[in-house]
């Protein structure tokens, strides 16, 4: 009897099934994903039991920056309460976020220049285009042209540096709707007027889809308050939030929503004794 022959086994593993599964997973993630939008600063929203979801479409988000938590700054509160604003259109139709931003910008700049006749700002086509492509922006109107002239990476860098004076939308002063508005109020007025114009069929050059998206925005802004969401950090002082509330009230936008994370009734974001 000779030696038992060891059969040579092939180590080839059939990867077909594996490949099938990964492709399926990939398809799933591609279809369900909504991409994270770039925001100049990270905020951690407080939690609440409210189960209402943030609408995906037609939303104006007001982001309030929080105090510096990295411990790098001497006065962490110095970067607190900077206001950024973002407009989201209908995600299903690719162009409407840009369209909405463009319309908002035109209106807001119009209002601003009307009120600041001595120092109007100029909005060129290139700047307008840059604005349409930016998700979230926070700058005084006076600094807006310079900001929009920058390249994307430069702009992100400037916007991310909250210690700068030209970052964040000015919000102080003025409690009179008819008086000289502050920059934040100019934006709010623009939001209201743009959605109202669409509602009254005044804007032209829009496709039916875009017009419908803006009609939805009008309802969201003026009727049920879903269209305006405040996203503030849990450690943002109430004084800052109060100021935003006050500005919204001044502009007669009394209904709005606050962004929160979900929690249960057992848990509460505070401590038991």
């Amino acid at each position: 009897m000779g030696k038992a022959k060891i059969k040579k086994k092939s180590t080839f593993i059939d990867m077909t099934a594996m490949s099938d599964v990964t492709v399926l997973l990939l398809t799933f993630f591609m279809l369900t994903s909504t991409f994270l939008q770039k925001e100049p600063t990270i905020v951690y929203t407080p939690s609440s039991v409210s189960e209402e979801k943030v609408p995906v479409n037609n939303l104006v988000t007001i982001l309030v920056s929080s105090a510096d938590k990295s411990g790098k700054l001497e006065d962490p509160a110095a970067v607190e309460g900077k206001i950024f604003i973002s407009f989201t259109g209908d995600v299903d139709s690719t162009f409407s976020s840009g369209t909405i931003r463009g319309l908002m910008l035109d209106k807001a700049v119009g209002i601003y220049n009307e009120q600041h006749k001595t120092a109007p700002i100029e909005m060129t086509a290139a700047r307008r285009k840059a604005f349409m492509e930016t998700n979230m922006i926070g700058a005084p109107f006076a600094a807006l042209p310079a900001l929009l002239d920058m390249s994307i990476s430069e702009r992100d860098k400037v916007q991310g540096d909250l210690t700068r004076a030209d970052v964040g939308i000015p919000i102080n002063g003025n409690k009179d709707k008819e008086g000289r508005l502050n920059d934040f109020q100019v934006w709010l007025k623009a939001i209201y007027l743009v959605s109202k114009d669409i509602h009254d069929q005044k804007a032209d050059g829009l496709t039916a889809d875009e017009a419908k998206a803006l009609e939805d925005l009008y309802n969201a802004v003026t009727k049920d308050g879903r269209g305006i969401a405040i996203k503030a950090d849990k450690d943002t002082p109430f004084t800052t939030v109060e100021m935003i509330f006050d500005n919204l009230q001044t502009m007669s936008l009394n209904k709005f929503s606050l962004m929160t994370a979900l929690t249960s009734e057992e848990e509460v974001s505070s401590t038991a004794k």
């Binding site: 994270l36 409210s50 995906v56 879903r226 009230q249 209904k255 929160t260």
Partner: peptide
Amino acid sequence: CTTMIKSQTLQIVL
């Protein structure tokens, strides 16, 4: 890159 968890909102009327 995806956000699976969506934020919740709290409606407020002033």
